[in-house]
């Protein structure tokens, strides 16, 4: 690990000022320290925000929840309100990492996890994410983990988070404070960026910004699930995952929201698939049509072509599960 200056922030203003001057914010540290040991990341300075008052889950206006950025993944998954009203969020959190890691990992940090692309982790390889402009060895290489949607000729990495997939389906917004005192709220689709020709810039955050909370609106539907498919039964990243929420009224699907993990640079959503399901009676044919629509735009990279049928089948299974009486 390269040497760095270490400062514990006493206030949010402190953290934002130091981050604005180039320090990297550390909270749980489970991903950042791993990357620092490998020298994939080598910050000159760290600012520790663990003692800031951002660790509460509060009821928000309109029946939602405001989750502080420092709420640990294990506390969020065990929260009674989350388990009752947003079960897919608890399921997504519990499908990720291990008990030890969830005790450390935070809500804000989970959103900012870096990809597990092997080429990003291997400092002997070029990688546009790690070293902008150096090239991408994943393209044409080993692509088992890589993206089906939204990739570019510069980067085909996927976002590794389970939590963020559930949050995208739940229409969560990220609360961000900036150094000039402005607070903004961004839906996940606007918070994350596609790789384009700047894959090293993964979100719209600028130095000096601080994620302070995640806001959940009142639960959209009672029927929710998170289904993750992976190489082993526990403690592995998703090959594909589907977060789904909907209701069935008078025999028809209403307000479906679906997000997909393991297939894009950000948790993926496709409004066309949701529109196709809205107001329709559940049927095997309808689910097959929705799944076909979802994968119609998939761009396989070779080694990840298996994800196309896997994603199609996982979505169909989720829709069957959610619409069963």
């Amino acid at each position: 690990m390269r040497p760095f200056e270490f400062t514990r922030a006493e206030s949010a203003a402190d953290a934002m000022r130091l981050a604005g001057d180039g320090a990297t914010i550390i909270a749980g540290g489970t991903n950042l320290l791993d990357l620092m040991k490998l020298e994939v990341m080598a910050p000159q300075a760290l600012v520790d925000i663990n003692r800031l008052d951002l660790g509460d889950i509060d009821e928000a206006e309109g029946g939602g929840l405001r989750i502080g950025a420092l709420v640990r993944n294990s506390d969020l998954a065990a929260d009674r309100r989350v388990r009752d009203a947003y079960p897919m969020l608890a399921e997504a959190l519990l499908a990720g990492a291990s008990g030890q890691l969830r005790n450390k990992a935070t809500t804000g940090g989970n959103l900012l996890q870096r990809t597990r692309c092997y080429y990003y982790y291997d400092t002997a390889m070029p990688c546009n994410k790690r070293e902008p402009g150096s090239g991408c060895q994943a393209i044409g290489g080993i692509t088992r983990l890589h993206a089906l949607f939204g990739a570019s000729e510069h980067c085909i990495a996927t976002h590794p988070s389970d939590m963020a997939v559930a949050l995208r389906a739940l229409d969560a917004r990220v609360e961000i404070q900036s150094q000039d005192g402005v607070t903004r709220m961004l839906p996940l689709g606007d918070f994350y960026r596609l790789p384009g020709d700047t894959p090293h810039i993964e979100t719209v955050l600028v130095p000096g910004d601080l994620i302070t909370a995640v806001l959940l609106p009142a639960p959209a539907g009672a029927r929710q699930t998170y289904r993750k498919v992976r190489d082993r039964a526990s403690y592995a990243f998703a090959l594909v995952s589907v977060a789904g929420v909907l209701d069935v009224e008078d025999g028809r699907i209403v307000r479906p929201a679906l997000a997909f993990g393991g297939v894009g640079h950000m948790p993926w959503r496709n409004p066309e698939v949701e529109a196709l399901l809205e107001g329709e009676a559940p049927s095997v044919d309808l689910f097959a049509e929705a799944a076909a629509r979802l994968v119609a735009e998939a761009e396989p990279q070779g080694g990840n072509a298996f994800k196309i049928p896997l994603l199609r089948r996982t979505l169909q299974a989720v829709l069957r599960e959610l619409t069963e009486a």
Partner: peptide
Amino acid sequence: CDHGQCGACTVIAGGRRINSCLSLACMHD
């Protein structure tokens, strides 16, 4: 492993089990 994958370094900090390899000592003051 020293990378949070094996759990051999598990200790209980503040009443919670954690991977001590993925935490800086100075963060536990």
